[in-house]
């Protein structure tokens, strides 16, 4: 009896990895010592500093496109709009808790920003909201009605649809939208096809489910009209809550340690097992 020959192992194709080994290749830019710091075809220090706004450069670094100043100003106003110095809001309270425990401002603010990477609020819903409105517009252009688009988001007939960009966890309505509508008007914008559809959907939801658009839905619609894709919108708004977290951090940092909203033992409602003896293994 002869055993089958042991197959010779083929060497792996490592070309993909070898090409990248020991080298960083960038299409974004970088620093050429003694020459320039390049960003997407611009010299940062010669062409952008003093000429472009921070938000123009942020959008440039995210998307590779240097947009008109009014687009950047609009985005800056969204950051202003979400700069609530209210320590009850989850991400902001993390800033307060960092301050009261004497973390650095960077640690506290990064932690608060990270907390707002939540499907419930902050930057993350912008991804889903932008994907929804882009998809909804495709459906509308293919002949679907608003009612049919909404019905696709219902788990069961009659149940409120689950659409990111509509409804809020704490309040009904969204006072930030009128403020941003005013900004849009001042900057010379009129609603494009995404935002127009977003309002049509809101009208339907208000009539049948008493639910209205939230700021995420408005931002998604507006920025989609400016030709940004969902990932770009999410990325450029990553830090959108940072200013409010800063405020809350600073206030608790400037007060005695652990004095921010201290809890007594009975503030926690323990509902676990009764006391029991630990068995030996």
């Amino acid at each position: 009896m002869s055993l089958p020959r042991k197959q010779k192992k083929e060497p792996a194709d490592l070309a993909f990895w070898q090409e990248r080994h020991g080298v960083i290749c960038s299409r974004k830019g970088g620093w050429v010592v003694g020459e320039a710091v390049y960003s997407h075809g611009y010299s940062l220090l010669d062409e952008l500093v003093g000429k472009a706004s921070f938000f123009q450069v942020l959008i440039l670094n995210v998307t590779g496109r240097l947009v008109e100043r009014n687009v950047a100003d609009w985005l800056e106003n969204i950051f202003v709009c979400l700069s609530w110095p209210d320590a009850r809001i989850w991400c902001n309270q993390i800033g307060s808790l960092g301050g009261t425990m004497r973390t650095s401002p960077v640690a506290a603010v990064c932690s608060g920003v990270l907390a707002a990477d939540s499907p419930m609020y902050g930057a993350a819903p912008l991804l889903a909201a932008s994907q929804f409105i882009a998809d909804a517009l495709l459906k509308k252009n293919n002949g679907m009605t608003v009612s049919e688009i909404v019905k696709l988001q219902q788990r069961r007939p009659g149940m409120p649809p689950n659409i990111v960009g509509y409804a809020r966890p704490v309040a009904t309505g969204d006072e930030r939208i009128p403020a941003m509508k005013q900004v849009s008007k001042q900057l010379g914008y009129t609603p494009g096809e995404h935002l127009t559809l977003a309002f049509e959907i809101e009208e339907y939801l208000l009539e049948y489910f008493n639910e209205s658009m939230n700021i995420g839905g408005y931002v998604a619609g507006f920025l989609s009209d400016q030709k940004f894709n969902p990932q770009e919108i999410y990325r450029m708004c990553s830090m959108v809550v940072n200013s409010g977290v800063h405020a809350c951090y600073v206030e608790s940092m400037d007060n005695p340690p652990e004095s921010f909203f201290p809890l007594r033992c009975d503030d926690i409602d323990y509902q676990g097992p009764r006391p029991r003896q630990v068995p030996f293994p």
Partner: peptide
């Protein structure tokens, strides 16, 4: 806030301090 994990038994003289802690009992 509800938890089923951790019970802190308050110190008699100071409810902000725990006298003992229990993990799931």
């Amino acid at each position: 806030t509800v938890t089923k994990i951790w019970e802190e038994v308050p110190a008699a003289h100071n409810p902000f301090l725990a006298d003992r802690c229990r993990c799931h009992g």
